[in-house]
Computed example of a mutant assay.
Amino acid sequence: MTEMATGPAEVVAAEPHGGIGQRLNWLRAGVLGANDGIVSTAGIVIGVAGAAVSRNAIGLAGLAGLVAGALSMAAGEYVSVSTQRDTERALIAQEKHELATMPEAELEELVEIYREKGLSEPLARQVAEELTEHDVLAAHLDAELHLDEDDLTNPWSAAFASALSFTVGALLPLLMILLTPEAVRIPLTFVAVMIALMITGFVSARLGKAPALRAVLRNVIGGAAAMVITYVIGRFAGTL
C-alpha cells in the first residue's frame, strides 16, 4: 500500500514548473518581434522608395525605423515584464505571509487542489503533507500560482530578446531594398518579405499549436496590405 500511495505522490510532485512554458513564450515573442521588424521596416523602405528618392534616403529612413522600432520594442517589453515580475513577487510575498500566519488553512487548501486534480482524499493529503515537509513555499507556489521563485521573468533579457528579434526581422527588407538593382528593388523586397512572413506565420502557429494555414494567410495579407498602403502613400507624396 505504501508503494502504491507514494507513486502518485511522486508523479504529482514532479509536475513541471513554468520553465518550459516560459521558454516557449519567449520563443513565440521572438518570432512575433521579428515579424514586427519585417512588416514595419518593409513598410518604411517601400513607402520611401515609392517616392522615388535616392538609395541613401531610403537607407537612412530604414535605419531610423529599425533603431526606433528596436528601442521601442525593448522599452515596451521591459516595462511589461517588469510589471509582471513585480506582480509575481507580490504574489510570492503574500503566499509567504499566509503560510506564516495560517499554515493549517494553507495545508487544507493544498489538499483540496490535489483532490480537484483527481486524487482521493487520503492520497491528496499524503501528497500535500509530503510536499509541505519538503518545501512548503515551492509546493504552494507551484500548485496555486504555477510559479517558481527561482525562475521569475527577467525584464532585461526580455528587452534584449525583443530588440534583437526586431532588428533581425528589420534587416531583411532593409538589405533587400538597398542591395538589389533599382529597377526591381521594390518587387524583390516585396517577394522576400512575403516569404519571410510565411515562415514567421508558420513558426508562430506551430509554437501555439494553431492551424498553420490561417496564421500564414493572416500574416501575409496583413504584411502585403501594409506595404501596398505605404507604397501608395509614398508614391503620392513623391508627386507633391
Score class of each variant (00 low, 15 high):
residue 183 A to T: 15
residue 225 A to W: 10
residue 94 Q to S: 13
residue 220 V to K: 01
residue 180 T to K: 05
residue 67 V to Q: 10
residue 151 D to Q: 12
residue 9 A to R: 04
residue 82 S to A: 11
residue 2 T to I: 10
residue 224 A to M: 12
residue 139 A to T: 04
residue 61 A to T: 11
residue 138 A to C: 01
residue 228 V to I: 14
residue 25 N to H: 03
residue 213 L to W: 14
residue 172 L to F: 10
residue 210 A to N: 12
residue 136 V to T: 11
residue 179 L to R: 07
residue 173 P to A: 09
residue 95 E to L: 13
residue 160 F to T: 10
residue 215 A to C: 04
residue 43 G to D: 07
residue 196 A to F: 03
residue 132 T to Y: 00
residue 119 L to P: 00
residue 105 A to E: 08
residue 5 A to K: 03
residue 59 G to T: 11
residue 123 L to T: 12
residue 111 V to W: 00
residue 20 I to S: 11
residue 115 R to F: 00
residue 186 I to A: 14
residue 161 A to M: 10
residue 65 G to Q: 10
residue 122 P to C: 00
residue 83 T to S: 12
residue 167 T to I: 09
residue 117 K to H: 14
residue 166 F to C: 13
residue 130 E to V: 08
residue 141 L to D: 03
residue 215 A to F: 01
residue 149 E to A: 15
residue 203 V to Q: 01
residue 25 N to E: 06
residue 127 V to T: 14
residue 143 A to W: 07
residue 117 K to Y: 12
residue 152 L to N: 03
residue 80 S to V: 06
residue 42 A to Q: 05
residue 58 I to A: 09
residue 140 H to L: 09
residue 229 I to N: 01
residue 67 V to N: 04
residue 182 E to K: 15
residue 165 S to K: 04
residue 161 A to R: 11
residue 9 A to H: 02
residue 100 A to E: 13
residue 45 V to Y: 06
residue 120 S to R: 04
residue 63 L to H: 11
residue 101 T to N: 12
residue 147 L to D: 03
residue 191 V to C: 07
residue 182 E to L: 15
residue 122 P to F: 00
residue 144 E to M: 12
residue 18 G to W: 09
residue 42 A to K: 04
residue 136 V to K: 08
residue 72 S to I: 08
residue 160 F to S: 04
residue 114 Y to I: 01
residue 109 E to H: 12
residue 30 G to I: 01
residue 199 I to N: 06
residue 27 L to I: 12
residue 37 G to L: 09
residue 124 A to W: 00
residue 148 D to K: 13
residue 71 L to R: 02
residue 154 N to Q: 12
residue 120 S to C: 02
residue 37 G to R: 08
residue 196 A to W: 02
residue 46 I to L: 15
